[in-house]
């Protein structure tokens, strides 16, 4: 420890804040938004901010489960979230079929299907000891295979009006319902992680599974519930997406698969497990959404390609800021 730093608590606190991923990514998101607003003043409008946050909410909700699975450790990662979100949206849209009549049944059915996928993921990882990366990658093929069989290649139905209103229509105190829902879910998840014994067990299992096991934590049950919750939240994200797009298509939520991991990591949840939290993930989701929208607004010539390249480069810069591993030499 540098004595100079230790001698001045205020400065130490400042330094610690400057290294806190939540602060860093929050500042990066804000800076990006300011640049975007300077280039295209529309970004600064209240409506545009709400639109951005609505877009971020889909990624944010899908990334809830990703955060839980990554915190639970053991190389935990869930790459099937995009496929599961698509599956949930497709199941829901068929049963809603554009009316509010079967809303509850449709929601229950689609989240139940999602939970089932999470259960299979968990069993594969915990019982058959397939590495999570491989298990959840493999499940993508299975889930899309099921979607193809279920829909015959042409998804049917559309969102219930109530769901559509939640995402694109009604506002409460000037803010769309979906943002209130995201806020509620965020508070719930943060409370779950910080104030409940489930949260403590999750961190314990992710930090050191052996000592968690020896302390009487049922490590398998904790990890299994993380995988099930991951799929359920991915399903919720898929339902919200359905409310936004109204009709579904195959691969609807595919673009959310790896960004959910990126948002989690940008938010300071380390892939080694046991560290991090959901607040960072929220900021990460907002950062990625602002970046994506900004690059779309810029309309650089040459179609999708330059946007993709810049997206990748900025992601690298953000990760280099603090998403780094320890040195071997200490």
């Amino acid at each position: 420890m540098n004595p100079l730093v230790a001698s001045s608590p205020a400065r130490a606190r400042l330094l610690r804040a400057a290294r806190d991923p939540v602060v860093v990514s929050g500042a990066a998101a804000l800076a990006l938004w300011v640049v975007a607003a300077l280039v295209s003043p529309a970004f600064a409008s209240w409506d545009q901010i709400l639109t951005l946050l609505t877009l971020a909410s889909f990624l944010g909700v899908i990334a809830i489960g990703q955060t839980l699975v990554i915190i639970a450790g053991g190389e935990g990662i869930d790459l099937s979230v995009g496929a599961v979100a698509t599956l949930a949206a497709i199941v829901a849209s068929r049963h809603m079929d554009g009316s509010n009549e079967d809303l509850l049944l449709a929601v229950a059915l689609s989240l139940g299907t999602a939970a089932l996928v999470g259960l299979v993921n968990g069993v594969g990882v915990l019982v058959f000891r397939v590495p999570p990366l491989v298990m959840t990658l493999g499940m993508i093929a299975v889930v899309y295979g099921f979607v193809r069989l279920y829909t015959g290649g042409r998804p049917a139905g559309s969102a219930a009006p109530a769901l559509r209103a939640l995402v694109t229509g009604d506002t409460v105190a000037g803010v769309p319902g979906v943002l209130w829902l995201w806020l509620g879910l965020s508070v719930l998840v943060v409370w779950l992680l910080r104030r409940t014994s489930f949260g403590w067990r999750l961190y314990a299992v992710g930090g050191n599974p052996t000592s968690a096991y020896l302390s009487g934590v049922n490590t398998k049950a904790v990890k299994l519930s993380a995988y099930v919750l991951s799929s359920v939240f991915a399903g919720v994200g898929g339902l919200l997406l359905l409310g936004y797009t109204n009709t579904v298509f195959l691969r609807l939520a595919d673009p959310y698969m790896l960004p959910s991991v990126a948002a989690t990591v940008i938010g300071g949840t380390a892939l080694i497990g046991g560290v991090g939290g959901y607040v960072g993930t929220v900021i990460g989701a907002i950062l990625l959404t602002v970046l994506d929208s900004f690059l779309r607004v810029l309309q650089i010539g040459g179609g999708d390609a330059p946007r993709q390249i810049i997206y990748g480069l900025v992601l690298l810069v953000v990760l280099s800021a603090y998403g780094r591993q320890r040195r071997l030499r200490q």
Binding site: A262, A270, D304, P306, I309, G312, L315, S320, R324
Partner: peptide, 26 residues
């Protein structure tokens, strides 16, 4: 050298390489 986590770092570069491929041969 930069010590980024392999999964996320190579995920980010996949955008770069995929985008470059589209530039070279649209």
């Amino acid at each position: 050298l930069l010590r980024l986590q392999p999964i996320v770092a190579t995920f980010a570069t996949s955008f770069v390489f995929g985008g470059l491929a589209l530039l070279v041969l649209p």
